[in-house]
Design a protein around this nucleic acid. Sequence first.
DNA 1: TATTAGTTCTACACCATAGAACTAATAATT
DNA 2: AATTATTAGTTCTATGGTGTAGAACTAATA
Lengths: 107, 107
Amino acid sequence: MKYLSRPEEIVLLAIWKLGKSAYGVTIRKHVQEATNKYWSIGAIYVPLERLERKGFVHSYSSEPTAERGGRSKRYFEITEDGLEALEELKKVNQAIWSGYPGIVSDK
Amino acid sequence: MKYLSRPEEIVLLAIWKLGKSAYGVTIRKHVQEATNKYWSIGAIYVPLERLERKGFVHSYSSEPTAERGGRSKRYFEITEDGLEALEELKKVNQAIWSGYPGIVSDK
DNA sequence: TATTAGTTCTACACCATAGAACTAATAATT
DNA sequence: AATTATTAGTTCTATGGTGTAGAACTAATA
């Protein structure tokens, strides 16, 4: 299994953390805060599209909300395969970083 | 500063860990063991080339050794910029993974 | 001349990233 | 009430860069 690219990893983790409230705008906000960097709109939506095509996330449209501009949102949720990919990635990360200063390997 | 791609991260960490003995073949071996996956020759050397172009590593040729096929090796060493990039990456990794089960954030 | 350790080369599909354009809702204006 | 402005949100698309494979090449000893 190929691993996820870094943007895919970052976006997928954001979805995992956001749970039920994961849609384009909240994901982007979360990612920008976590990485402390500007992310363009495309830098979020393109990986989202690819994650969905690969089966790591699934999306559905909500009802519009009754606020100005409150159009229907496209919510994302992580799939079983997505969870597995995260576990796999976690293992690889721990393996490659183990021994580096400031990294606690929890065994 | 853009982050390193994943192959670049993996290869750079391998160089860091290998220290004085980092050259193409040992790097490849180390990376394959750490990730438990097959890596083609190009999958190692191309990122190496790019890391050098970006100033994260530096390379030099050794004297040939006196063994069959023992031609001169191209050793790699991590630069100051490379070390900084690793520190930056470590921070990003900790930020995006914090809160995920099985991750110890050492604060 | 054969064999071996090691590196260079290169091709191509896929990915990263930016941001303009589009959509569909409510609010303001006449 | 009809029209226009504003807003939240998503879709689209272009382009340069990256990921990955492995064949070809090189330079040493057997």
